Simulated assay, not measured.
Amino acid sequence: MADAAITALLAKARLGELVADYANLIDWLDWGRLDALFWPDAQFDFGMFKGDLAAFRGFVAELEEGYARRLHMFAMPTIMLAGDRARIDAGSVTVCRTDAPAPGIDDIFWGRYLFGAEQRNGEWRLTGLTYVLNLYDRIERTADDRGGPMNFGDGLSPEHALAWRG
Rank of each mutant, 00 (worst) to 15 (best):
V60G: 05
T127I: 00
R85H: 12
D89H: 15
R70H: 10
M76Y: 04
D84M: 07
T127C: 02
E64V: 15
D21E: 13
G51C: 08
A117C: 06
I105T: 15
L81G: 05
R70D: 01
G122T: 03
R120C: 04
D89W: 13
L25I: 15
L53S: 11
I79F: 06
R125N: 06
F56G: 04
E62S: 14
L81D: 05
R70I: 10
W28C: 10
A23T: 11
T7F: 00
T7V: 00
G128K: 08
Y22Q: 07
A117S: 07
K12N: 06
D21L: 06
L63Q: 15
F109V: 09
E17N: 11
L53K: 14
T7H: 01
G128P: 01
A102G: 00
G32V: 04
G58S: 14
K50I: 11
G51S: 08
A61E: 10
L9C: 10
K50T: 15
L29N: 09
F59T: 09
I79R: 12
R57H: 09
A86I: 06
D52V: 02
A75V: 00
L114I: 11
D107M: 10
D84P: 09
T127S: 09
M48Q: 11
R33G: 05
A100V: 09
A75M: 00
N121Y: 03
A86E: 05
D89T: 15
R33W: 00
R85F: 01
D30F: 11
D41L: 07
P101L: 09
A55N: 10
T98Y: 02
R97L: 11
A55S: 14
P101G: 10
F115M: 06
L34Y: 13
R125Q: 12
D30V: 10
R69M: 14
G51W: 06
A11R: 08
L15C: 05
V60E: 09
A61S: 11
A8T: 03
L71D: 03
E62H: 14
G47S: 08
D99I: 09
R125Y: 02
G91V: 01
F74P: 02
M80S: 15
E123N: 04
R70C: 12
A82P: 04
T130A: 03
D106H: 09
V95I: 12
A100T: 13
A13H: 15
A54Y: 08
K50R: 15
T127P: 00
T127K: 02
A42W: 13
R69E: 15
T78G: 06
L10S: 10
A82H: 14
F49G: 12
D52Q: 04
A20C: 03
R70K: 08
L81M: 06
K12D: 01
G111H: 04
R112P: 01
R33T: 02
H72R: 08
C96V: 07
E17G: 09
M48G: 08
I79N: 10
H72E: 03
E62N: 15
R97T: 11
M48T: 14
E118L: 01
D52Y: 03
D21S: 13
R85S: 10
T94F: 04
L71Q: 14
A11C: 00
R33F: 00
R112W: 02
G91P: 00
D99N: 15
I26Q: 08
D35N: 12
T127V: 01
A23N: 08
W28T: 14
D35H: 12
R120N: 05
M73D: 05
A8I: 01
G111D: 03
A13G: 11
E123P: 00
E118P: 02
I79A: 07
D107R: 14
L10H: 11
R57K: 12
